[in-house]
């Protein structure tokens, strides 16, 4: 379970430009559920997602994932936590454009101590799961938006994480590719992954596999 308690995130604290991105957030997300964080641009949903992913630290409050507090973890531990438990899918894919699909997908496995054979097996599995196997030798810069998205999904799945975090995953996709993305998420839900998607896309509004929609506005959770 993921438990967020009294979470605040303040930028430029104690200056004239002080800005509250998140205010007093309290959420519980059940394991293997799919949750949508919904809100307009600047509402704070991406900030919340990056705190959940240990990519940034909260100003106050706590985030407990699998009974471990990740809010104040030192770098070495938060990196290890990300590498073993989390998979990220970013709006702008965040891939290495010079590398090919297979090489991009293997990046999260490098610090985990696997040998090359194990890496190859895991990458092969992720390629199949994200349905991008046919493009594995293609350089990322030559891929379409949808293919880049599937490469990013494969990279997020390669370390077999329990939690998948998606930040505006359909923002750069057309409707066909958006639906394909939703199919992959449905498949992941069936594999008992916990999925958290930060989006303002209405395509996620009435999906059967979505367990909860949390609306965020100006850093607050709307009841």
């Amino acid at each position: 379970m993921i438990k967020i308690t009294n979470l605040n995130k303040v930028f430029n604290q104690n200056t004239k430009k002080e800005f509250y991105a998140l205010k007093d957030i309290n959420i519980k997300i059940q394991t293997s559920s799919c949750v949508i964080l919904k809100g307009v641009s600047g509402s704070g949903k991406s900030t919340l997602l990056s705190i959940l992913g240990a990519l940034s630290k909260p100003s106050s409050g706590d985030v407990i994932i699998h009974e471990d507090s990740i809010a104040k973890l030192p770098d070495l531990h938060s990196s290890a936590f990300r590498a073993r438990n989390l998979g990220f899918i970013f709006q702008s894919y965040n891939l290495f454009n010079e590398l090919n699909v297979e090489e991009n997908i293997s990046i999260p496995l490098v610090p985990l101590g696997f040998n090359q054979k194990e890496i190859n097996e895991k990458v092969e599995f992720a390629l199949k799961l994200a349905n991008i196997e046919h493009k594995k030798d293609e350089t990322v810069s030559n891929l379409s938006g949808g293919e880049k998205q599937r490469t990013a999904i494969a990279r997020a799945l390669v370390n077999n994480p329990d939690i998948i975090l998606c930040d505006e995953p359909t923002a750069n996709l057309d409707s066909v590719n958006s639906l394909k993305f939703i199919d992959v998420m449905r498949k992941l839900k069936e594999l008992n992954k916990t999925i958290i998607i930060a989006t303002h896309d209405p395509i996620f509004d009435n999906l059967d596999f979505v367990d909860d929609i949390i609306n965020i506005k100006d850093g607050y959770i709307l009841e």
Binding site: D75, L76, S79, A83, F88, F96, I107, V110, P111
Partner: peptide, 16 residues
Amino acid sequence: KKEIGILRAVGWSIKD
């Protein structure tokens, strides 16, 4: 800068 950010996001530590 982005490259370092991506590596960190996918689980690489500062040391790595």
